[in-house]
Amino acid sequence: MEALLPIIFVAIMGLALLLYVILDGYDLGVGLLLPLASDKEKDVMIASIGPFWDANETWIVLGVGVLLIAFPAAHGIILTSLYVPATVMLLGLILRGVAFDFRVKAGSHRKAMWNQLFFVGSLLASTAQGWMLGSYITGLEHTQLNMVFSILIALCLPALYCVLGASWLMIKTEDELFLKAAVWAKKSLSPMAVGLLLVSIATPLVSQVIADRWFQLPQFIGLLPIPIASVIALSLLYVLLSRTPEQLLMTNPWMIFMCPVIICVMAALGLAYSIFPDIIIGQLTIWEAAAHTSSLKFTFVGVVIALPCIFVYTIFVYRVFSGKASELTYD
């Protein structure tokens, strides 16, 4: 049990962060796409994420929370080392989060400003998250090469969010905005693909251990499904988005949305395989960083009870707000 609990908690943390990237990813993506839309469309776009964003954002609190609960030593090192991007991300999340309410409540003369701040907040948060991811993969060592790598990820992660956001909009909107979203998704595809490729190339380059883990037989063959599934999902996404407007309107938008979701899941699996059992690459394993067993056991009880409940009412909320968002009014 003592050796197993850290594995369980690192899995929960990974799941929470993966869910965050997918769920708040589409929220942030919608925020990033906001300046491209007309004022009326902006309202629909924000209505499409309005009932969900708050709970979506909570997954990062759980992810960071589990890091803190289960791996307190790593929590301190990682967050102190990522102080600047974490602060930028938090400022971004603040602006984005409050803009939801202020843009409709502060009066029409202020609405344009809050729409802009909504975009700025989403941009700050998503680039800072890319920067944090880049620093984390490169072992939190602030060399010049690592900085360049982190900046590249900081530019590519928002593209992934744009794809997620645009395909979410295709689920939630109709007609003109739906078709616009398809165009936005397609335009974001190549920067996203470049980002994925960069991470895939850089991780083995950065760490010999990771390179050995991937490029050895028979592991290499066993791992092939991960890149293959990613490539298939990416190609399928490209094919679907290249359809004519008439065909697109007939396409099930959930199929489109699932493509970037599969890419996120595959990226997470690949990353998890590369890093495990380290919590800070090359410095600290999950067992070295783990909290005391008494703390892990106590928290585990809460997780076993609460997490299924969270899933149940999250699904309930998504069912209540299923369908197109156009009619969702709220002031």
């Binding site: 309005g50 009932p51 969900f52 708050d54 709970a55 954002e57 909570t58 609190v61 759980l62 929370g65 589990v66 803190l68 609960i69 289960a70 307190p72 909290a291 703390s295 106590f298 928290t299 809460g302 997780v303 609460a306 997490l307 969270i310 009412y313 999250t314 909320v317 209540v320 707000f321």
Partner: peptide, 20 residues
């Protein structure tokens, strides 16, 4: 850690989800 964890698990998701 665990006390904060219980706050996230029992409170944050509950209020954020039903707020919608």
């Amino acid at each position: 850690g665990p006390l904060l964890g219980y706050e996230v698990l029992t409170a944050f998701f509950l209020e954020a989800s039903f707020l919608g």
